[in-house]
Simulated assay, not measured.
Amino acid sequence: MQTSRTIKIKESRGDRVLLIAIHTFLTLCSLVVLYPLIYILSASFSNPFAVISGQVWLYPVDFTLIGYETVFKNSQVLVGFANSFFYATVGTLVAVTVTVMMAYPLSRKTFYGRNLLMFLLTFTMLFSGGLIPLYLVVKDLNLMDTRWALIIPNALGVFQIIIARTFFQNTIPEELSEAAEIDGCSDMGFLFRVVLPLSKPIIAVLVLFFAVGQWNAYFDALLYLKDNAKYPLQLVLRNILLLQTTENPTNISETMKRQGVAELMKYSLIVVSTVPVLVLYPFIQKHFVKGVMIGSLKG
């Protein structure tokens, strides 16, 4: 009966020193990234005067929910959550569909004129019409003060098309398409039955890119929307913070109190607006990393 032996390779002193240096550097980088997040979370649960006086370093001081209570007292917050969820969901669905439908043909060598079309798309990354022409286009399309004003102008991203096209080029071989064509599969059938099931990593990348962009967007809403019932969460939270800081208090103590609450609300607003994205990321992390690595390679 043979027993398996584990072969251990002895590390040299230089390798150990290098590994220690790498782990130390990565640990410091992690601390640099994590500490601001921990501070924001701790400050959002701390007493306003403790935050202003700089007593908060790592843990909450005088635990309180004043910041969150002030935020959620406004009825517009739930409306903003619903609107942002709608914009993120529908906007991501539209953007991913348009991106895949454009990126896949550009990845096929049999698509006539793909180089010219790719050049025109890349050209828009260097030169664009600017904010005023975009505003006039949205206005002429009668999209002002509609939900589509936040979805259609952001339905196409050239950077995302380049990543998706590169993924398709490196992952879906031409031979697979030819074999499917011989078996009688149409182009649309090949796309839905073969390409999309094999493209979960890049779809996860596109979903995260577009969803985060739609969730954090507020400038377009500031330009195109007038109805408060259509405001996304980011714009609602901005208005709450501005209202809190612009109201005129009656005395000095009231002034200090409002300043403290306004300072506390900044951290509470950051937590409220980032939690949905943090909840989404773990579910697509595996596909996201794989898709970025493959899609970022030069095709």
Rank of each mutant, 00 (worst) to 15 (best):
M1P: 06
T6A: 08
R13A: 06
L18T: 14
L18E: 09
F25K: 04
T27K: 00
T27S: 08
L28N: 00
S30G: 13
S30H: 05
L31P: 02
Y35K: 07
P36V: 05
I38K: 05
I38H: 07
I38D: 00
A43V: 10
S53E: 14
V56D: 07
V61E: 09
L65F: 15
I66A: 11
G67Y: 06
G67N: 11
Y68S: 01
T70W: 03
T70K: 08
G80R: 07
F81W: 09
A82N: 10
A82E: 13
T99A: 09
L106D: 01
K109R: 07
L116Q: 07
M118A: 08
F119R: 07
I132D: 03
P133K: 04
Y135E: 01
V137F: 11
N142I: 10
T146N: 03
R147C: 01
N154M: 15
A155R: 11
Q160G: 07
I161D: 04
I162P: 03
A164I: 02
R165D: 00
L176H: 15
S177P: 00
E178V: 15
E181V: 15
G184A: 05
G184F: 13
G189N: 09
R193W: 12
P197Y: 09
K200L: 01
F209N: 11
G213L: 04
W215P: 02
Y218S: 05
L225D: 02
L243Y: 11
T245K: 06
T245W: 00
I252T: 14
S253Q: 13
G260H: 00
G260Y: 04
I270R: 08
V271G: 01
V271L: 09
L280A: 13
Y281S: 06
F283G: 05
K286E: 10
F288L: 10
F288R: 04
S296C: 08
